[in-house]
Design a protein around this nucleic acid. Sequence first.
DNA 1: CGCCGCGAGTTGTACTCTGCAACCAGTACC
DNA 2: GGTACTGGTTGCAGAGTACAACTCGCGGCG
Lengths: 145, 145
Amino acid sequence: MEAATAVETIQREMTVFARRARASAGRLHPELSLVSYTLLGHLEERDGCRATDLAAHYALDKSTVSRQVTALERAGLVERRQDPEDHRVQVLHLTAAGRRILGQVTVSRRAAVGERLAEWSREDLERFAGYLMRYNAWPGPAEDA
Amino acid sequence: MEAATAVETIQREMTVFARRARASAGRLHPELSLVSYTLLGHLEERDGCRATDLAAHYALDKSTVSRQVTALERAGLVERRQDPEDHRVQVLHLTAAGRRILGQVTVSRRAAVGERLAEWSREDLERFAGYLMRYNAWPGPAEDA
DNA sequence: CGCCGCGAGTTGTACTCTGCAACCAGTACC
DNA sequence: GGTACTGGTTGCAGAGTACAACTCGCGGCG
């Protein structure tokens, strides 16, 4: 495979994944949209962060994040805390309920994805995961595709 | 890295990519949405197919595809041809204009993605592309995430 | 101190994408 | 012919999103 072809393939396959992921997320977990899930996941991973950080990480407009967070807060899954240093920012944290729901969804997602990856060798899994992280870690503006 | 962790990471990173891809697609190519681009790409790859096939491949509702195709046809990028065998189906084909636009977008996308992948060895590129294809080739229902 | 620029977040507005349900048209099988 | 199925369209409603305009708090500079 030529390098340009590989790049092309990476693009196309990532896009297929993206579309299918969005399409099926709602069906699998009606209680938590793909958006909400990823935001909660990020909060858990970072143990709290600002709305602006979420927007930057997912290349979303801050208004979009604001609305999503509002919904998550109304659902009792997320908590806003005032930053004592800077009264402009609100640090977001998972609530106990948020952590619980996130755990449930993660389990069922892992089952679905794990089924697809069941035949993969551990080495392939790790390399694949590594490639994805490496790709996403690119520091530039999120001009992925 | 444990296998479950790798699965988790794959999920999360794929999702990050998915979200960023959608976010930036519109900015890079205002003339062709991510959806339209992928549909056109699929048509080129398969050299024509039915609307239902597109819906199945991307896990989209047939109504959604119908509307997208209508838009693409209005834009003169896609052509519907009656199947002489079965008058229900309409086989979709790229027009010359569609092929041209698709080519332009592909070039600019490849430039953007290629920049990110510039430092990668050819071996890594090919392995990454292979993993993605392998993942998406899973035959089951598109319960990706 | 008071003004100005900046950064975080919210709200108004409009648009796209999407799915579901209801429907029409053509096909296949009895 | 009638019934069931398939491909596709249309009406409707809802989620996600961006952009612009706004508020509020922080920090520098005269």
